[in-house]
Design a protein around this nucleic acid. Structure first.
Length: 940
RNA sequence: GCCGACGUGGCGGAAUUGGUAGACGCGCUGGAUUCAAAAUCCAGUUCUGGCAACAGAGUGCGGGUUCGAUUCCCGCCGUCGGUACCA
């Protein structure tokens, strides 16, 4: 009975399709379990072997839970809007919908090859109008709500309007823009309808505002930060400028605290939670206003986490970009300040980061007044203060902050101690909170805990400050000047934005002649003909960003066809939330923060049952590729000369260029001594025509040895391994098990086919357990013996435990061990093999399905199989083998009855010949006996 | 700089609560089978010494706690990921 994975796979795929094995429906009689993979973007290059790693793990877990009697939701779909399709459209004119559909088709084929148990009837695509209708709908809800700080949740904007009508915005408990002016009820009621709408934008959870973007005039488009390198566009190297543009924004800052504290209630990797905490960056402190000496009505506002050190302030530092700098600069300082600002602007981010030690700055010539004692404080500018954080101004306390201390030393500014516990201020700042305050009038003699509230209430009474919580998190820009995204369901009337009517959803993406911005710099949607709301008002022309559609998609899977709601109450009540979420750590602060934000909002509206939507999250590690290079002699003019990597040492004076080689041409790919043979060289020349006629200096064996390096698996490195090829050669089950066998799921590792033969060999041997000497399928109905039952139950115990802790690599080992042992025992008994088939079904769905039917079952092991129950009775041993150690070092092993008493064990151990020689002539100080574990004799 | 993770044979990795370090697989060595090769099967394989029994060393480095440490604690070194000169 030969193991032919290809045949088995074709048979199973057809059978599963016909029977709808993986279709799932609400079933109140079964407990639910939701296993979710992070949404893939269907890229043009298809899947490589790194992508399915997480999918295989989640599939194993989903199948395992199904066999354990859970009703498992395990869906898949596509985050189908995105830049690559748009860029392809710009180059080729092919509509992104068309290329995306083709890419999705390819992805689907690749996924099907690996044997996943997705319920494809629930597939969603974010670019489908039936899907993005609801993305737009959620956007509208955000627009129609504000964040109420008293209720600590989102409330309808109508409630806020009622308050404005009666009281203006006095005593309004709402998160608002920092610059929102105070207005009375009268002022509100006298506003025009348009002005009222504009005023409400200060409160809405999504709103348009002017914000800075990286504008590239030559490309006519906005670039993301990582598309800009050293002030020019990465593509083409065109200049990029900061430009103010009207952009939609999401008031995620309203949810900062909830996003922070919510992390405590989810089982996510600690490093990921820490990244989110840092990103939110909550710091508690105080805002303090320092009046200008010469213009007391003008205040410099600073944020500090150490308001208790305010008597130690000896200077003030503003960011060079601070708006008051021009006003503060005295004529005699003009030249120096201008020079400094110019110098700062010329420095790249990287340069500013690299030079942490060097102190730079310039004095403006002006002073402000310390509110607590009226002292004159000189005002400097320096680039260690960032314009984008807090207020762009810092009150400098050199005795308590090292950076301030460095600055004070450099510019000869005083360093005033403020706590009696501060030490060695001549050498460094001391940020201690210990001791009692000195030189600090109001708080002298107090401790930190008493000083802070006293100062804050004093400052509040003076109108000079208040307690404040500062976040690093900023509102998220939600507009993209792109074509291939969800249209924003809004239009503009006299400069005021309005939503379209809910009944008009979806607002469908219009056709355009080109996918480029218009000549006047408007987004591509500006090219759509007659695209106006009610034929007269301009629609919003920007589209939503990539993360819009992925911020709620897990609900759509629960109820994908619903056209009355984004998800029905019935579905969400049953499926609740995601039990297991697997995906890459690159989404740590993007997708995983935005989606939590939307989920909290939907929770506030009572539309979803859980504040946090994913209970447990696992990051799968990246699978890296090996990049192969050959050495080109840089100085070979005329005829180009390539030299085998093992020969380059013979030319000490030569200079080498590393030319990447497509890994398909390389023999023994992935091994240290991978090489190009004659055929490989021909393929290389075919591929890189410019090297036609080059000389190839091979080694003695006629091989061009390549230089190998571990790096990202990507199209541009020519090292993408297509899972289809591996599946064709070894079968899908082997591919699945090998990916798991590589190591722990969270760990990054290079793709390396060296070990795959071992897994293939194992699968063949496993399959072979079911056949007789002549190669015919044969299992016996004989009752199993003790040894066989022990092997089976050891495997059951180990595999079950390891799946539960997501240790899939050790599960594969356990299957190998069981197979090896049963081979030795020549066991082909049904009572052993059949439970083993079920146990292995989540890992090797095809092979086990085939064996299941050969074992005379009608249906599918994945639907009808019952997970074998572990029975510890079978593992019981009459004897236990003990290591016997002298002073902790094992010197002998011996078997003793498993029910032997401590005393008997000690006595028996002492009698052993191998032990006698170690204790002879020595005093036994102590004997430690841990039953069923070990015996240790301490001698001295 | 800060935050997080990690460091075990030639290689991928195992050791779940502090209890025989190196499971399982690759590779390598020897043998069987074969006209031969591939494939398959059997045995061995941390290092050092020894024919062997065995002895010594050994989980990045240095210390500590313990009868006993890959595991716990302190201090270094290195690698990877994240990042923000964050007041």
């Amino acid at each position: 009975m030969e193991y032919k994975p290809g045949e088995i796979e074709n048979k199973c795929k057809a059978f599963w399709e016909k029977e709808g094995i993986y279709k799932v429906n609400i079933d109140p009689n079964k407990p639910k379990y939701y296993v979710l993979d992070m949404f893939p973007y269907p890229s043009g290059s298809g899947l490589h072997v790194g992508h399915p790693l997480g999918y295989i793990a989640s599939d194993i877990y989903a199948r395992y839970k199904r066999l354990k009697g859970f009703n498992v939701l395990h869906p898949m779909g596509y985050d189908a809007f995105g830049l690559p399709a748009e860029q392809y459209a710009i180059q080729t004119g092919v509509h992104p919908a068309k290329s995306t559909a083709e890419n999705i088709k390819r992805y689907r084929e690749q996924l099907d090859n690996i044997g996943f148990s997705f319920d494809w009837s629930r597939e969603v695509q974010t670019c489908d109008p039936a899907y993005y209708k609801w993305t737009q709908w959620i956007f509208m809800q955000l627009y129609n709500h504000y964040y109420d700080t008293a209720a600590d949740k989102a409330l309808p904007i109508d409630e806020l309007v009622k308050h404005l009508e009666k009281h203006g915005n006095a005593n309004l408990n709402a998160v608002a823009d920092e610059e929102t002016p105070a207005i009375t009820a009268e002022a509100w009621n006298n506003m025009s309808e348009g002005d009222q709408q504009l005023f409400l934008l200060n409160y809405r959870l999504t709103f348009p505002e002017e914000s800075y973007v990286n504008w590239c005039p030559q490309l006519g488009t906005v670039l993301s930060n990582d598309e800009v390198k050293d002030g020019v566009s990465e593509r083409g190297g065109y200049p990029v400028e900061r430009k103010l543009m009207q952009q939609w924004s999401m008031r995620i800052t309203a949810y900062a605290d909830r996003l922070l504290y919510g992390l405590e209630n989810v089982d996510w990797p600690e490093s990921l939670k820490e990244q989110q905490r840092n990103w939110i960056g909550r710091s508690q402190g105080a805002s303090v206003k320092f009046a200008l000496e010469e213009a007391p009505d003008t205040k410099i506002e600073v944020f500090t986490t150490r308001v208790d050190t305010i008597y130690g302030v000896t200077f003030m530092v503003l960011a060079p970009e601070h708006e008051l700098v021009a006003q503060l600069t005295k004529p005699e300082q003009q030249e120096e300040i201008e020079k400094y600002i110019k110098w700062t602007a010329s420095r790249s981010e990287v340069e500013r980061m690299a030079e942490v030690k060097k102190v730079t700055g310039a004095f403006t010539g002006s002073y402000c007044l310390n509110p607590v004692n009226g002292e004159k404080v000189p005002i400097y500018i320096a680039d260690y203060v960032l314009a984008g954080y807090g207020t762009g101004a810092v009150m400098a306390v050199p005795s308590g902050d090292q950076r301030d201390w460095n600055f004070a030393k450099h510019f000869g500014l005083p360093i005033v101690p403020i706590l009696d516990a501060q030490q060695n201020l001549d050498e460094a700042a001391d940020a201690t909170k210990e001791g009692k305050y000195i030189n600090s009038e109001l708080i002298n003699g107090l401790a930190y805990e008493e000083a802070v509230p006293k100062l804050i209430s004093w400052l509040e009474a003076q109108g000079a400050g208040r307690g404040k919580i500062q976040y690093r998190l900023r509102n998220a820009v939600f507009s993209r000047q792109r074509y291939w995204g969800e249209p924003v369901p809004a239009y503009w009337k006299d400069g005021v934005p309005y939503l379209i009517d809910e009944s008009e959803l979806p607002l469908v993406l219009p056709q355009v002649d080109k996918y480029l911005p218009t000549e006047t710099g408007e987004p591509p949607l500006g090219r759509a003909n007659d695209w106006k709301y009610k034929g007269q008002y301009d629609y919003e022309l920007s589209t939503m960003p990539g993360w819009a559609g992925s911020s709620w998609y897990w609900y759509r899977y629960m109820d994908p066809g619903n056209d009355q709601a984004f998800v029905s109450k019935e579905a969400v009540d049953y499926w609740q939330d995601v039990d297991l979420y697997i995906g890459g750590s690159e989404h740590a602060v993007g997708h995983l923060l935005y989606s939590r934000f939307w989920n909290h909002f939907l929770y506030d509206l009572g539309l979803v049952p859980k504040k946090e939507y994913a209970k447990k999250l696992i990051n799968q590690g990246m699978i890296q590729g090996v990049i192969e290079f050959i050495y080109l002699d840089k100085n070979s003019t005329g005829q180009k000369r390539f030299v085998s990597a093992d020969l380059t040492g013979q030319y000490p004076d030569a200079e080498w260029a590393q030319i990447p080689v497509h890994v398909d041409f390389v023999s023994d790919y992935g091994k240290d001594d991978s090489y190009l043979d004659e055929a490989g060289i021909q393929q290389f020349l075919e591929w890189r025509q410019e090297f036609k006629g080059a000389a190839f200096e091979a080694n003695a064996e006629g091989k061009m040895v390549t230089y190998s390096e571990v790096g990202k698996m990507s199209k541009s490195k020519f090292n993408v391994i297509n899972p289809d090829d591996v599946v064709a050669q070894y079968g899908a089950d082997c591919f699945r098990m090998y990916e798991m066998f590589l190591g722990p799921i969270e760990q990054a590792k290079p793709w390396d086919t060296q070990g795959i033969d071992g897994v293939y060999k194992f699968l063949r041997r496993f399959y072979d357990l079911f056949s007789d000497k002549d190669g015919h399928f044969a299992v016996s109905d004989e009752a199993p013996d003790k040894a066989e039952l022990k092997v089976l139950h050891q495997a059951i115990q180990k595999v079950e435990q390891d799946i539960e802790r997501f240790s899939f690599n050790t599960c594969v080992s356990a299957f190998m061990i069981a197979t090896n042992e049963l081979r030795k025992l020549k066991c082909n008994k049904r009572d052993i093999l059949e439970p083993l088939v079920v146990l292995m079904a989540p890992f090797a769905p095809f092979t086990t399905e085939d064996l299941w039917s050969k074992l005379d079952h009608e249906g599918s092991v994945h639907r009808d199989g019952k997970y074998p129950a572990f029975n510890p009775e079978y593992l019981k041993e009459d004897e236990v083998e003990y290591p016997i150690a002298i002073n902790g070092k094992t010197r002998a092993t011996a078997s003793f009855p498993s029910d032997a008493s401590k005393e008997d064990l000690e006595a028996a151990a002492r009698e052993l010949e191998d032990i006698q020689k170690w204790i002879e002539g020595k005093t036994i100080r102590k004997v430690i006996v841990v039953p069923k574990r070990m015996i240790n004799i301490v001698v001295g």
